[in-house]
Design a protein around this nucleic acid. Structure first.
Length: 225
DNA sequence: GCGACAG
DNA sequence: ATCTTGTCGC
C-alpha cells in the first residue's frame, strides 16, 4: 500500500502542530470499528541515538501467530517533544507498513491516540495516513486524569481530559499496572479496549506490541554493522 | 511563573 | 526510548 506523508516535512514544533491540526480534519471516530478483525498489526520503534529501527508485525487475531513482519532501519526524523512523538518515527514506520504484502484489519500503536494535548496522537496520525483502523496503547500516563481501576483483569476507568472521555485506563492482567487505551482512527473506545484485552491473554502488553518491540530491537542490533 | 510531559 | 543489579516467581 502507498502512504503519503505531509509535504514538506515540518522543521519546527509550530509547523508540526499545524500539520496535526490539518490532518485532524480527516479523523473518523464515529463507527464502532472492526468487530472481528482477521489480522492485527503491532508497530514499534527502537532507538540508539539518532539511529532507529521501525517494526511492524501482523498477527492472526485468533491464534496470535505471526502472519508477516517487516523491519526498517533509519534515523530519527524529529527531536523528541511530548505531543509530537509521531514526527520522530512516522517516516520509518510508514516505510515498514508500505513493505507489507497484506493489509491488516487493525493497527495497535505504541503511545496515545485521541488522548493527546491536541487530540491527535501517533495512533490518530497513523490512522489518517493509512486510512486503517488504529488504537493507541500507552504504558505510562501522559495526559488526562483518572481513578485507579479495579485490581482484576478487565477492570477499567475513564481517562478524562477537559471534561471529555478520551480513553480508558485498562487492567489487562490481575494485579498488574494498567495500560492507557485511546481511539486512533475508525474504532470506538469500547471496541478498542475489547481488542486490546483479547490481544493480552497472558502479559500486560498486547501480543502485537510485544512482537513489534522484539523485532524493532533485533533489527536495530542487526543494523549496527 | 513552575513543573510535568507518549516513546 | 535508553542506561543498568539484583531479586522474586513460575
Amino acid at each position: 500500500m502507498k502512504i503519503e506523508l505531509s509535504h514538506p516535512w515540518p522543521e519546527t514544533a509550530a509547523e508540526a502542530e499545524a500539520v496535526q491540526d490539518a490532518l485532524r480534519a480527516g479523523l473518523d471516530l464515529a463507527g464502532p470499528g472492526p468487530s472481528d478483525p482477521a489480522t492485527v498489526a503491532g508497530v514499534d520503534v527502537a532507538y540508539a541515538g539518532e539511529r532507529l529501527a521501525a517494526a511492524v508485525v501482523v498477527l492472526d487475531t485468533a491464534t496470535h501467530r505471526v502472519v508477516e513482519q517487516v523491519a526498517v532501519a533509519g534515523r530519527t526524523a524529529f527531536e523528541y517533544v511530548p505531543g509530537l512523538l509521531a514526527f520522530r518515527e512516522l517516516p520509518s514506520l510508514v516505510e515498514a507498513l508500505e513493505r507489507l504484502t497484506s493489509v491488516p484489519d487493525l493497527i495497535v500503536c505504541d503511545g496515545y491516540g485521541l488522548a493527546h494535548p491536541r487530540r491527535f496522537g501517533l495512533a490518530c496520525h497513523l490512522g489518517v495516513l493509512t486510512g486503517l483502523p488504529t488504537v493507541g496503547v500507552g504504558k505510562t500516563a501522559f495526559v488526562g486524569s483518572y481513578r485507579e481501576p479495579g485490581p482484576r483483569r478487565g477492570s477499567w476507568s475513564e481517562l478524562m481530559l477537559d471534561g471529555e472521555v478520551v480513553g480508558r485506563v485498562l487492567r489487562t492482567q490481575d494485579g498488574v499496572k494498567p495500560v492507557f487505551v485511546s481511539p486512533g482512527h475508525r474504532v470506538d473506545l469500547d471496541t478498542a479496549c475489547r481488542h486490546v484485552l483479547g490481544l493480552s491473554p497472558r502479559y500486560r502488553l498486547p501480543e502485537t506490541t510485544r512482537a513489534a518491540d522484539r523485532l524493532s530491537r533485533a533489527a536495530l542490533r542487526a543494523a549496527a554493522d
